[in-house]
Structure formats: C-alpha cells, structure tokens
C-alpha cells in the first residue's frame, strides 16, 4: 500500500508539465497575512507570481504541509491545476480550513472561459476584473484577495466568456480557490 506521500507525489507526476510542483508566494516586502499557491509549471499562473513579487518556496508537497502546520497565514489563495487543488484540499480540510471561493479558467474550447463560485454580489468586483483584464486575468486574484477571503461557498456560480487565447506554456485548465481558517 503506497504511503500518503508517495500517493500525492504520484498524482503530481501523472500530469507531465515542465516544472512539476507548487510555487508558494511570499511577496518579498509585502508579507501579507495570506498566502498564494501557484502552479510553477504554468506560464499564465506565473504571471500572478511575478505580480506579487513572489519567490519560489519549493516544489515539494512537504513544504506546503510544513507551512500549513506552522499556522502563519489565515487564508490561502491558489491558482493551480485541478490535481494540485485537490492536494491542497486534502491537506487544508483536516486543518480546519473552509472553502470560501472557487473558480475555473478553461482554455479548452479555444478561448478563455471563467466560472466563479461564491457570494457573487460580494465578489462582483473580482468577476468584473476577470472579464475586463484579458490575458492578465490572474492579477484579479491579487487585487481582490481580501474580498475573496470574505466570500462564502456554496454560493451561486457565474460564467464569463472572453476572447482571450491560451498563451504558450500555459495549462489548458486552471482552478483558482481560497481556503480560509474557520
């Protein structure tokens, strides 16, 4: 029977993208009380990392576990592939986190489609930013981080269709999410 760690690592290995793993953002001087988890293998997601002045904290799930255990941040916001989102969920739930916001960002139909789930009235500025920002849409997660952390799921969902094409080096399908300590 595989160990939990082996299982998690194998999940990551199945999705063969260039830099497998998770980039954890510590904004260099910003030092916010929330953290970002970003798929380091995806060019579009890395845009968010750049915007926040991120440094790579590691590409091993163990780093993530250590940070979650150290209880430094109240809220975690992610822009990752679905498999990584799942890993985070399995780590976060038993540690007392709850899901506050969820989104998907899908290039598979040709142009980018967003779907957001949460308190739609509250997160309207975020939804509008996704619609208006074109290829720079990941910055909306940074711009409205505090807002997303106050949303609640299950909420309603909204779909936003854009004309944005998938840039090279980007994943087909990304998820965004916010887990917050309850």
């Amino acid at each position: 029977m595989p160990t939990r760690r082996a299982f998690l690592q194998s999940t990551l290995a199945v999705i063969a993208l260039p830099a497998v793993g998770l980039s954890i953002v510590h904004s260099a001087i910003a030092a916010r009380p929330l953290r970002f988890v970003i798929d380091g293998g995806c060019a579009v997601a890395r845009r968010l990392a750049d915007c926040a002045g991120a440094t790579l904290a590691g590409d091993d799930v163990a780093v993530l576990i250590e940070l979650l255990n150290r209880d430094e941040a109240d809220a975690w916001i992610g822009l990752t592939r679905d498999a990584q989102r799942f890993i985070f969920e399995t780590l976060a739930r038993p540690r007392g986190f709850e899901l506050r916001y969820a989104g998907t960002h899908d290039y598979r139909t040709g142009t980018l489609q967003h779907r957001v789930v949460g308190d739609l009235a509250l997160i309207a500025p975020h939804t509008q930013a996704l619609a208006a920002a074109g290829a720079n849409w990941p910055t909306a997660l940074l711009d409205y981080a505090a807002l997303l952390s106050r949303s609640r799921t299950p909420g309603d969902s909204a779909r936003i269709t854009t004309a944005t094409l998938r840039p090279p080096g980007s994943a087909d399908y990304l998820t965004s999410w916010c887990w917050r300590r309850s």
């Binding site: 904004s27 260099a28 001087i29 910003a30 845009r47 750049d50 915007c51 926040a52 002045g53 920002a133 074109g134 290829a135 720079n136 910055t139």
Partner: peptide
C-alpha cells in the same frame, strides 16, 4: 498600498 505592482500593466 504595496510596492512592486506598477510594472504589471493591463494587456
């Protein structure tokens, strides 16, 4: 207000 944000212009 945080530093290091301004060079990321909207496309």
């Amino acid at each position: 207000i945080w530093a290091g944000r301004s060079h990321h212009k909207r496309s």
